[in-house]
Structures are given as C-alpha cells and as structure tokens.
C-alpha cells in the first residue's frame, strides 16, 4: 500500500512537470507550423513559455460582478483535474502509475472537468460575453460527447467480444491494438471511421477552430476567458497545453499503441524506455499536427448550432456506421 502511495506522489510531481513542459512545447510547435502554413513567420517555439512567464507578472484582476471564490478556484481545479488524467495514461513504454485504479470511462469524465472548470469560471466572471461563451462551451461539450462515447464503447465492446476482461482499462487496450482485433476488412474500415471521428472530436474537446465558438475572439471577445487575467489566465493556458497532450495521447493509446522497441527488437532497459518515449512524443506530435494544426488552419469557425448539428448528425451517424461495421465484423467471425 505504501509503495503505491509513494509511486503516486512521485509520479504526480514528475508527470505534472512533464505535462506542462510538453504541453507548452507542442503549443509552440503548433503555432509555428500554423503560421508557416498561413505564410507567416510566427512566434518562436518557446513563445508559450514566455507567455506564461509574462502572465505571472501581470495583475490578477477580479471583476466587480465576479464571485471571487469560484472565479479563482475554477482555473486551478481545471488544471489539477487535467494533470490527474496523466497518471492513467501510458506514456511511451511506461506503465501508467494508476493503471489498476481507473479506466477509460474515468478518463472520459475527467476530461470533462477542465471544460467544466472553464464554464464555471466563465459564469462566475459575471460578464455577458463570458456567459455566452460558457454556455457555448457547455453545448459543444454535449455535442462532441455523443460520438466520443460511441468510439470508446465500440472499442470496449469489440475487446469484450474477443473474451478480454477489464476491457475499459487502458492496459488491455494497449495490449490488444484495435487493428489486430478486427477479423476482416469490415472491422478495419469500422475502426478507421472511428479514428477519423476521434480526430474531428479532438478540436472540439480542445476548443480549437472550427469548434471554438465558445472563445470566438471576433464576436464575443474571447468568450469565457474575457475577464481572466494574470495568473488565473496562466492556469487556463497551462490546462489547455496539458489537455492537448492528453487528447493526443488518447488517440495514440486507442489507435496506435505500438512501441518501437518491440518492432525493432531492442533490449536493454534504458534504451527501450528512451526509444519508446521518443517514439511516443513523435506520435503525439503527428496526432496534434493532423487533428489540431491542419484542421485549425484549413477551415473556418462554425456557428454554435452548426457545431451541435455537425457532431450530432453527420459525425454520430458516421461513428454509428463504424460501430455497426465493427459489430458486423464480430458477428461474422465469432462462431
């Protein structure tokens, strides 16, 4: 018991630093790349670190209509909850520290908390802009949760059909990569559809263009963050970075859980871990490139009812088609 407690304490500290540093790093890369795609020079890659430093030196204004204790607590709560997800996600070749005490459903719920914190913070600022932004964030959350739930449950259903136990546990999912579980082309197509949907869900989860109606700088002036400044805003900034890493890791875990060391047949403890970590970071980068940067540069913002429509009608139907394919695949082969 005391061993797991110690591991948890050390793991939390290490992973929090890891999440924050790489979250900001990927944010910098994302900004640089998208700038290049738009034929701009863009900020240097370390710009997000500078932004955070700058925010820490700014005044931490609490507006008059805000409710101070909720207004201050919300950014912190969001960041803390986001960091706690990192302990359930396998990073590189490392087994997650809390692998036996939480599963995919828990991660799904914990991913809501940072958005919820932003919503609550937005409401607590007492500004009409923030309120509009916050309710849009909530509506977006409802919208993307439908396809997301379908994806997660489909994968678990498939693994369960093959006789696995603890199918919601990430360790089971990484041990049985989804592509291997499909018994025919139908299953492969089904999982491919789910992957595409998950890639489109990611910008919604992260409030990135085209699903950034909650923040919409041009119409509601930054939406739910409009009244935030100083260190509170820095907390949200960090949350965003960590959440990006987590969403990308989730795609990696669900669909590309391969490790380079197994494929290349490398032995040796340190080289294996180092190689897997680097490969993992590369995978995360690629996922961010596709699901955040490219989509963000390529399309324009949707209206809020269009967001609900996009997620609930085309994407939900698409993921249901994927689910049907996967189920069909299962029924065809299981005798």
């Amino acid at each position: 018991m005391s061993e797991i407690v110690l591991k948890t304490i050390v793991g939390t500290i290490v992973l929090a630093l890891f999440g924050i540093i790489f979250g900001l790093l990927y944010k910098g890369i994302d900004r640089k790349l998208s700038a290049h795609m738009q034929a701009r020079v863009g900020p240097p890659i370390r710009q997000p670190f500078r932004d955070v430093m700058k925010l820490f030196t700014k005044e931490n204004v609490i507006p008059r209509h805000a409710i101070p204790w909720i207004f201050n607590l919300a950014p912190l709560a969001g960041l803390v909850a986001t960091i706690s997800i990192l302990l359930y996600i396998p990073i590189g070749g490392f087994e997650p520290i809390l692998s036996g005490s939480g599963d995919l459903i828990l991660i799904l719920y914990l991913l809501i908390v940072p958005s919820l914190a932003m919503v609550v913070g937005g409401f607590a600022s007492g500004s009409p802009y923030a309120t509009v932004g916050a309710q849009r964030e909530m509506v977006t959350m409802i919208a993307y949760e439908f396809p997301l739930a379908i994806i997660i449950v489909s994968i678990a259903w498939k693994l369960n059909q093959l006789g696995n136990v603890d199918v919601f546990a990430l360790s089971t999912i990484t041990a049985n990569p989804v592509w291997n579980t499909a018994s025919g082309p139908l299953g492969i197509i089904g999982f491919a559809i789910l992957l595409i949907v998950l890639v489109i869900v990611t910008p919604g989860e992260l409030s990135k263009i085209p699903f950034d109606a909650p923040e919409a700088e041009t119409e509601i002036a930054g939406g739910l963050l409009v009244e935030y400044s100083g260190r509170n805003l820095a907390m949200f900034y960090l949350t965003d970075g960590v959440k990006t890493v987590i969403m990308a890791s989730l795609i990696v875990v669900l669909f590309f859980p391969y490790n380079l060391s197994n494929i290349l047949g490398i032995t040796g403890v340190y080289t294996t871990y180092a190689l897997d970590l680097i490969f993992y970071l590369l995978k995360v980068f690629l996922v961010i490139l596709f699901s955040v940067t490219l989509i963000r540069v390529g399309v324009a913002r949707l209206k809020i009812d269009q967001i609900v429509y996009t997620y609930w009608i085309p994407l939900t139907l698409l993921s249901l088609v994927g689910l049907v394919f996967i189920m069909w695949d299962g029924f065809v082969t299981v005798p």
Binding site: H65, I67, F123, G126, T131, Q135, M138
Partner: peptide
Amino acid sequence: VKVFHSVFMG
C-alpha cells in the same frame, strides 16, 4: 450547470 449559472452566478 444551467441552473448553477442562473441561480448562483451573475
């Protein structure tokens, strides 16, 4: 959350 906003916030 809607209730939370309309009753307690603002």
